[in-house]
Design a protein around this nucleic acid. Structure first.
Lengths: 388, 388
DNA sequence: ATTGATAATTCAAATGAATTGAGTTAGTCC
DNA sequence: GGACTAACTCAATTCATTTGAATTATCAAT
């Protein structure tokens, strides 16, 4: 997965493809618009936009919303993304279960499926994934020939690294080319990603980051993950393993960030007190009951979160940091409210337009939805970074 | 400096511009090539490359290197970048001095200038900068009408943040629009950056990162800075202050990373022992003499560097981390050799193609050269990220 | 109610740049 | 020496955007 310095040339066809994407992306972020308005936003002529809009309409990707008058002149015909114009499949592979979700172009989940598994070897997973996709399509007949691709979420890190074999990765997957395997199994273009990255994109497509282009997402999976988005695109690192924040040592304590701040951490902590909290709902109940052991954990977790904020903010200078993943919303809210935000941070600026830390909005299936969001994001934005 | 979600459309002209840049960039990274070979690398037709090469030659940007036969067929005429085809100005503004460097297209410094200053208010700086540019042009008459732009390096962070006013920023610059000021003063397009970012780009243009596209640069300025390069482009953060790693707390010690790992840190440490080390050469002498106080500092600095590595590697998963800045090479080498590289890191992979930590090659004027490198990088690569 | 200004849209023709296809040239391989 | 191969050139074509003129629908002022 090494990044090559390749810089492809451009031609008329590629330009057109880019402009199609740009128009779709513009309609997604800014809502319904007229053609002239789109043209101004993208520095194109109205004629060009008109031509492309005609094609997109033909392809069923747009909805005409009628004319809306705004001041003088001919009122513009408003166009909006047709949610049923395309779909994206999201697959999340965990050691004990496989999740699938089908998202429409608005990022709404129109079908969700899950299946419990006892084994997660590649061949077993492929069989299940095929079945889940078929079941999702049965619910949404429209989607059969309109699915743009599949995003797959699997526990990282990918490839052999210094944190391989620490329990979070799946057995039997080290040697295989997962991307090709999935591509052949479901017959769609595939994007592979870890849970934190996917969750980060879920917020961008259908959560609190819809108008935020540079942010970090702290994700409660088994451990603690981080998804980095810069200029609307994921920062994956040279080998796709950027954001392994859980393994960074914590000041003042022995151990790593995820020893204090993760699902495993809270489970372990409560287990020492003889309490079982393997379930998110159980955890929520403990919190509602003000369970003293949970509260003790929250105190140390808040401190660790404060430290994570110092690292993330000073390293990436994001617009905001979003907290989410496999935790009850109430606990996430508590952490957001109680984490000590570091004073010594570039993000500690007056009149910041966004809160420094906020809770994600995508709920429990975040990673699965995020997997699909990776596909939507690719369909709706070209890999061009912001102009300076 | 907030990143806007703008995604401009494309047309024939913009395509051509992009292809020109792509060809120049290809010649820079891969050296002299024939037209057909370039065409294959960029997915263009030979004819297109032929047309653009003709124009670039006309503009004096290329050198014909004669035919080189390689196997069967007509030997290709090799084209290479003409170093004298364009120049980039780099300016570094420090509280006590201003540096200027003029780089040719190969990234070679063809003129360097410096001037000591007692005041660094905007108006004073502008006067000096104009003079330095003029002096540089006197040395390289060719460059007068071929300077592509100016990169400016100033102490960050930019804008008001939680680490403003900690001694590293310049007085009188908080309220001004520095970019416009410089643009008007020297009549060139300007890119503004902090020292660590500039140093990172210097390594890419003319150092150890020429064939590395994703890396981090740990920079010894007054404090400790970090430049992040992903896919050949700087990751600046939402407000341009990404990489303020010096203010991250260190585990096991009170204080920040730059309390243990920076110029100020070593100066302070030696001052407590009654030794003055404000000068890089003095520092070098202490090192050559195995000065016990310096050695003690190096021990704690190495530990801090190890911790910085854990953060940078796990957060960013770079191909390598480069260490450089205002330190003697011998000390940098010592740190590279003695820093404890964390086992628990995504970068701790077998058969890694690059060392995890290496010393930068740009020498003492790193930041100034890097400022100019920002311009060259912009001229030689379009803001298109790597395809997946 | 009429008239003028404004803005969105469409149609047809022009333009810019890349591609295509048919030669030409200069080497290697047998 | 002849077949083969690959780079390169020329001219014609294609693709997609732009340009400019004409049309339409609404607002605002008289």
């Amino acid at each position: 997965m090494i990044v090559l310095p390749l810089q492809k040339g451009s031609n008329a066809e590629r330009s057109k493809h880019r402009n199609r994407q740009a128009i779709l992306g513009q309609l997604r972020t800014a809502g319904a618009m007229g053609r002239a308005e789109i043209a101004r936003a993208l520095s194109l002529t109205t004629q060009t936009v008109s031509n492309i809009i005609a094609e997109l309409s033909q392809d069923g990707l747009l909805l005409e919303m009628g004319r809306v008058s705004a001041g003088r002149g001919l009122p513009a015909i408003q166009y909006a993304l047709n949610p049923e114009g395309g779909y994206a499949l999201g697959i999340e592979v965990r050691p004990d279960a496989i999740f699938a979700a089908l998202l429409d172009m608005h990022g709404k989940a129109v079908a969700t499926e899950r299946i419990a598994v006892t084994q997660a070897q590649p061949d077993v997973v492929m069989t299940h994934v095929k079945a889940l996709y078929a079941r999702a399509l049965d619910q949404v007949p429209n989607a059969r020939h309109r699915t743009l691709g599949a995003g797959i979420v699997m526990p990282g890190p990918f490839g052999e690294t210094g944190i391989t074999g620490m329990g979070s990765d799946l057995p039997g997957w080290q040697e295989v080319d997962a991307e090709t395997l999935f591509e052949e199994a479901i017959g769609l273009p595939v994007v592979l990603s870890n849970d934190a990255n996917a969750a980060a994109m879920a917020e961008r497509i259908n959560g609190v980051a819809q108008d935020i282009t540079s942010y970090a997402y702290l994700y409660f999976g088994a451990g603690l993950g981080l998804g980095l988005v810069h200029g609307g695109h994921l920062v994956r690192g040279a080998y796709g393993n950027a954001g392994e924040i859980g393994h960074i040592p914590v000041p003042g304590q022995s151990g790593n960030l995820e020893d204090a701040l993760s699902r495993l951490s809270v489970q372990r902590h409560l287990q020492l007190a003889g309490k079982d909290a393997h379930n998110v709902d159980t955890l929520d109940q403990f919190f509602q009951q003000n369970d003293p052991d949970l509260m003790a954990w929250l105190t140390s977790a808040s401190a660790a979160l404060g430290h994570a904020m110092a690292i993330v903010e000073n390293m990436f200078d994001p617009q905001t940091v979003i907290l989410g993943g496999a935790m009850p919303d109430a606990i996430l809210d508590h952490l957001v409210a109680h984490a000590p935000l570091p004073d010594l941070s570039v993000s500690n600026r007056p009149n910041a337009p966004h809160p420094r830390l906020m809770r994600g909005a995508s709920g429990r299936m975040t990673a699965t939805l995020g997997a699909a969001a990776l596909i939507l994001n690719r369909a709706l934005s070209s890999p061009i970074s912001h102009a300076h």
